[in-house]
């Protein structure tokens, strides 16, 4: 048994939709989901401004993870402009604004494939922004030696683009199968098959069983 857990990963995107991946632990109560500020709509510039403010940080995080911060600014701007341009095509009954924005961002990231591969190579060799100022805590939390995974980065780079899109929308954006399907405009069942294929390849790259798996808390009381 443990004292109530204090640590939780910073919630991302509160107000835009469900929080992006939160730390998952068997110890202590699960942190509650960030409540959405209500349904977002794209009707009118005011509403669009609200969508921008609610979703910018989350979309930027995702794009910057995939193609690096230098290129993310342009792509994120383009994502919101595209969303505004195509706002008449948005159907709130089919997708959340959040999933729709992720879909647009993913399509735009797809035009920067070489940049994505370069970003992955850098992540595998040097880790994510390890020398960025203000990141001491996060860097300290990670076991930095473990996060250097050239093998894993190479495996992600080698994935079919469509498989990679599904994988990263699940792993980085925290979307559900349904949201991925609407974001990318693909059938629900296709999400599962692409995800399985991508995960299989990652597992192979990581070399089967993960010795780091921690059967935590069995005896930690």
């Amino acid at each position: 048994m443990t004292a109530p857990s204090r640590a939780a990963r910073p919630a991302v995107g509160a107000g835009c939709g469900p929080a992006a991946p939160a730390g998952r632990t068997w110890a202590g109560p699960v942190p509650s989901a960030a409540e959405a500020a209500g349904p977002l709509s794209l009707d009118g510039p005011e509403a669009f401004g609200a969508v921008f403010d609610a979703c910018f940080a989350e979309i930027h995080r995702y794009v910057a993870q995939r193609i690096g911060t230098d290129h993310a600014e342009d792509v994120v701007s383009e994502t919101f402009l595209t969303a505004f341009r195509k706002r008449d095509a948005y159907d709130p009954s089919r997708a959340s604004v959040r999933a729709w924005l992720y879909g647009i961002a993913t399509n735009l990231v797809g035009r920067h494939r070489r940049q994505e591969v370069r970003t992955l190579r850098a992540l595998g060799r040097h880790g994510p922004d390890a020398d960025a100022p203000g990141h001491d805590e996060r860097v300290a939390v990670r076991v930095s030696a473990q996060s250097l995974r050239p093998d894993l980065a190479a495996a992600v780079a080698k994935l079919d683009r469509r498989d990679r899109d599904v994988l990263l929308l699940v792993a980085l954006a925290g979307l559900s199968h349904e949201e991925v399907a609407t974001a990318l405009g693909i059938p629900y069942g296709t999400v599962g098959s692409r995800l399985s294929r991508a995960r299989r390849k990652l597992r192979a790259a990581l070399g089967g069983g993960d010795p780091m798996l921690d059967p935590e808390e069995a005896g930690r009381g």
Partner: peptide
């Protein structure tokens, strides 16, 4: 492997003025 993947990607750095800057660009575009 998804957690390992998140660890690989980490948290990108966020320039504190970035949101306002992009907002300005998007606003101009709109």
């Amino acid at each position: 492997e998804l957690e390992t993947l998140r660890e690989l990607y980490g948290e990108p750095q966020a320039d504190p003025f970035l949101g306002a800057r992009v907002r300005g660009r998007v606003e101009a575009g709109v």
